[in-house]
Simulated scan of single mutants.
Amino acid sequence: MPIATRAFAATAAHTPLSPYSFERRDPGPDDVAIDIQFCGVCHSDLHVANNDLGNTRYPIVPGHEIAGVVSAVGSDVTRFKIGDRVGVGCMVDSCRVCSSCKEGEEQYCVPGMTQTYGSPDPKGAAVGQTVTQGGYSDHITVDQNYVLSIPDSIPLDAAAPLLCAGITTYSPLREWKVGPGSKVAVIGLGGLGHMAVKQAAAMGAEVTVLSTSDRKKADAERMGAKHFLINSDKAAMAAAGEKFDLIINTVSATHEIASHINLLARDGTMVMLGLSTEGMPVYALPLLWRRRRIAGSLIGGIRETQEMLDFCAEHGIACEIEVIAPDRINEAYSRMEKSDVRYRFVLDMAKL
């Protein structure tokens, strides 16, 4: 039987999200049905709801930071059982045969991963769904190969944002081999930035936070940052020149990055994580002069996401959250645009 599902959805660009009902597919042989308990609110949800990328198909149920409990499993499911604490991140399928998928980097699937919301959904045809719908809802059905196990030591509400914010920062820290002795700067102390600070510090790095003001300095230090730098302070920026091996840039709005390149040591890398939609100029000479790099990173594959969850459990790391009822999602979007959250909104789907 199809699973009746309640949700909040965007029905047009720049209009408030509103209650929405639809059906999820009943679990097939390899599927896991999940009662969603919490769903994080990501800045990319706002971009999609507002059609900032120009490809949103309405109505759309955002949400790709999903934590809940297994309610049913298909006949061939071996990894999960009813009652397990599980999570779903930014993808629910991929081609499984391209080089990226075979290497456990499903997020870089060559034909394109099936995103948790907004992707074509051939598996949803039986219940009239042509597009995947996300976690601002009370149920979801996902192939077992794209479901994560949430360690018992992490509360489900604080675990939810790890499925995007947590893996988005963990993946580049691992890719660029951060460890004891590494000097890491984090630009922006928001939903992503605060996770980068906690994870990099737990890996043994010396962490500096760059921000536009000092209002979050105490938070940054509590999370493990050793230094705090105001990026409008030209003298302080000059003094920090050529210091960092890695800069994690989490800012999702268009901003000036050219002056930050000089903070990188030789062979240093700035990794862009924010989903900005406009160009940001840089100059060749500072890159050439020290063999510096600007790179991008998405989320992580399923294997790496599970590794991240286990790492966070081992080190006592979780997102710092503000839990709200789903009917406050439009207020949350408004506050998120003003950076008025410390540090991630999480929807309590029991209050739907």
Rank of each mutant, 00 (worst) to 15 (best):
R6H: 14
H14W: 07
R24A: 06
Q37I: 02
L53I: 09
R57G: 06
I60W: 06
I60Q: 14
V61M: 06
P62S: 10
E65I: 09
S71D: 12
V77M: 06
C90I: 08
M91C: 07
S94C: 09
S94W: 00
V97I: 10
Y108T: 11
C109F: 03
V110R: 14
Q115L: 12
Y117F: 15
D121N: 15
G124N: 08
A125R: 02
V127H: 04
G134P: 11
S137R: 08
L148I: 02
D157M: 01
A160R: 05
P161R: 08
A165V: 09
T169L: 09
K183E: 09
A185P: 05
G190A: 11
G191Q: 13
H194L: 02
V197M: 07
K198F: 10
M203S: 12
R215T: 15
R215F: 06
R222Y: 05
G224V: 13
K234I: 14
A240R: 00
L246F: 14
A253N: 15
A253C: 13
L263A: 10
D267L: 11
G268P: 15
V271C: 11
S276E: 10
E278Y: 09
Y283V: 01
A284E: 02
L298I: 05
I299C: 14
G301E: 02
D310I: 10
H315M: 07
G316H: 03
I321K: 09
E322K: 14
V323E: 04
R335W: 08
F345L: 04
D348V: 04
M349Q: 12
K351M: 00
K351C: 00
